[in-house]
Design a protein around this nucleic acid. Structure first.
Length: 215
DNA sequence: TATTGATCATGC
DNA sequence: GCATGATCAATA
């Protein structure tokens, strides 16, 4: 049942132009009337359609291929509309790690991008899937991502998590990630003393996914 | 109006 | 609570 990379790409290419409504019908899913209560729906639909197997385990969507699936919502101008969540930021333990062994690096090693129409004027069931493509970061991309990651991790290691905001990082930013701003998770302050803080996640800026899309 | 900060759903 | 999947909405 495990597809080869080539088979996956072929399968993905067949989805070009299909509407979310058509795809949902194939899997007997109901198209949500709005995305506010169904934020992850498109991602889950594409996981089904392409046979991703990871569920909510912390492994790539296509485990045997080491490929991560990411939907990429587009504006009416076919530009990326939103930043892309990568993974949560480790703020609770100072696990001495380097870029190569980081979750961010592993997640972005191979990504199957699924661009799709996300302009709100289009009915959800009529939004079309675009040209799905397999991508890996270029060496220049990696240089910048690695630098961003190292700067964020150093700030966290110094116990300055509260200083971090979404303005930091050229390609990779850190923003809140949780159920609400009241969410708290364990971390530490600049003296190493325990502190409760808002959970955060790593996100790719739209500036970066726009560059990806252009190539 | 682009970006940062806040939020929604589900499974275990 | 944290992993998965993200988009909404206030504000600069």
């Amino acid at each position: 049942m495990n597809l080869t990379e080539r088979e996956l790409i072929t399968k993905a290419s067949l989805l070009r132009g299909i509407t979310l409504g058509e795809l949902a019908r194939q899997y007997e899913l109901t198209v949500p009337s709005n995305t506010i209560k169904s934020k992850g729906w498109v991602g889950e639909l594409l996981e089904l359609a392409l046979g991703a197997t990871a569920g909510n385990r912390s492994v790539p969507d296509f485990e045997s291929l080491g490929i991560e699936l990411k939907t990429l919502p587009l504006t009416a101008q076919l530009q990326p509309k939103e930043s892309t969540f990568v993974c949560s930021a480790p703020i609770s333990n100072i696990s001495a790690s380097d870029w190569e062994s980081s979750s961010v690096c592993k997640k972005l090693d191979k990504v199957l991008w699924v661009p799709f129409e996300a302009d709100t004027s289009i009915d959800i069931s009529l939004r079309r899937v675009g040209n799905i493509f397999l991508w890996s970061p270029s060496s220049q991309d990696i240089q910048i991502l690695k630098r961003d990651w190292e700067e964020h991790m150093e700030t966290i290691a110094l116990g300055q998590i509260e200083e971090i905001d979404g303005r930091r990082g050229e390609y990779l930013q850190i923003r809140p990630k949780g159920y609400s701003s009241k969410d708290r998770t364990k971390t530490f302050d600049l003296d190493g003393a325990p502190l409760m803080s808002n959970p955060r996640g790593f996100y790719l800026r739209t500036l970066f996914t726009r560059k990806i899309l252009e190539n």
